[in-house]
Amino acid sequence: MKMNDDSHGASPKRVGITFCGGCNQSYDRVALAGNIRDAVSGRRDFVYSSNGPFDAVIVICGCDCACADTEGFGRARILTVRRFLTADEVLSMLGDLFGQQDG
């Protein structure tokens, strides 16, 4: 299914991805970001966007310190990831953030 093919009529949420600086990451943050982008394509509830404004921003942090700056994203909801998760787990958490089912 195409990501914009929303059978419920609501437009998909625009999701951005940002990172901490990665001084001592405990997993491959870039790989996780790639997995999330791949998993988002083909969904109707979320669409990946590299530019704001965003409805949600996934902040991929390399450790529990999660020092990434999350200001500057306006009213976007923030989902902070601190350890390696599957893309599905991340998207499910994102769904919870919006109180909706997976697409």
Binding site: T18, F19, C20, G21, G22, C23, R29, V30, A33, I60, A68, D69
Partner: peptide, 8 residues
């Protein structure tokens, strides 16, 4: 690199 620009 976006994954490092926050500190770089």
């Amino acid at each position: 690199r976006p994954e490092h620009s926050a500190i770089m």
